[in-house]
Computed example of a mutant assay.
Amino acid sequence: QNISTLVKNLSVKTLLLTGKDKGKIRLEKNLQIKNGEAQIIIGTHALIQDDVSFKSIGLVVVDEQHRFGVFQRMAFTYKGIKPSILVMSATPIPRTLSLAAYGDMDESRITEKPLGRFPITTISINLSKENKLINRLKEKLKTNEKVYWICPLIEESEELDLKAATIRYEYLNKIFKNKVLLIHGRLKEKEKEEVMEKFQKEDYKILVATTVIEVGIDIKEATSIIIEHAERFGLSQLHQLRGRVGRNDKQS
């Protein structure tokens, strides 16, 4: 969506290929890629499958590089004649850091935010102040802003004293009637898409989630993210989760 918007006034055709494209639709898209009809191709791991061939691949951009294996990233080099490869990540894996440090990979850093963005304010509070947090949320939601609430578990565990996403969803739904949605990894892909579409386009204010929203989510109205039991997450996960907010001209 973002790239299509950027090039809408240019004579450039974009195409999206994912694993959900099957049968005739996939064959048609593969043909457009092969004959060069599509100049900018955006996709998932589907692009490195054997049935996908490019007419003349010049540049490969691998976003969220840490989620691809070495051989998966190298697969693109065999689909063209030495294409330029740009890998991007806010949390690069140790191997990538080593390659950059020892000169085997050129490095560029984006150190500035887009125009009009503010630095994200990060606060740590004790769970005993939950009621105070809920009251703060009530005030924030009056301004038409949206909130992520992240939990480390999907369901309650007898072994771990942690609040599960399902329990948190039920609790918040009693307070914020018909304003709360739940998403986690056990939902089918179509169900996840439906939840995210409702959260983005309808009058839902809070999305209770697991780390399933860690990457690939861009909702401008979301200005706050609450990460419950933050000690259960790694630094990379926390950094990626925090990146879900701060995407508009309001303070996050």
Rank of each mutant, 00 (worst) to 15 (best):
N35P: 10
N35S: 13
G36C: 04
G36N: 11
E37K: 14
I40A: 07
I41V: 15
I42S: 06
I42M: 15
I42C: 14
I42A: 05
G43N: 13
G43F: 09
G43L: 10
T44P: 02
T44W: 08
A46L: 04
A46T: 04
L47S: 07
L47W: 03
L47E: 06
I48F: 12
D50C: 01
S53H: 04
K55N: 14
I57Y: 05
L59M: 12
L59I: 08
L59G: 08
V62E: 01
D63V: 09
D63H: 03
R67A: 04
R67G: 04
R67F: 01
F68C: 07
G69R: 04
F71E: 15
M74I: 10
A75F: 02
A75C: 09
F76W: 08
F76C: 07
K79V: 05
I81M: 08
I81T: 06
K82P: 01
P83R: 02
S84H: 14
I85Q: 10
V87G: 00
S89C: 12
T91M: 02
T91W: 03
P92Q: 03
P92N: 03
I93A: 12
I93Y: 03
P94G: 06
P94E: 09
P94M: 07
R95C: 06
R95G: 02
L97W: 04
A100H: 01
A101M: 11
A101H: 00
A101Q: 13
A101W: 00
Y102N: 15
Y102K: 14
G103H: 10
G103S: 12
D104M: 01
E107G: 02
E107Q: 13
S108W: 01
S108C: 04
S108M: 07
T111D: 13
T111S: 14
K113F: 15
G116Q: 13
G116L: 13
G116A: 10
G116M: 14
R117I: 05
R117C: 12
P119L: 05
I120G: 09
T121W: 03
I123T: 15
S124H: 10
S124G: 08
N126Y: 07
L127G: 14
S128H: 08
K129Y: 09
N131G: 00
N131P: 01
N131E: 13
K132C: 01
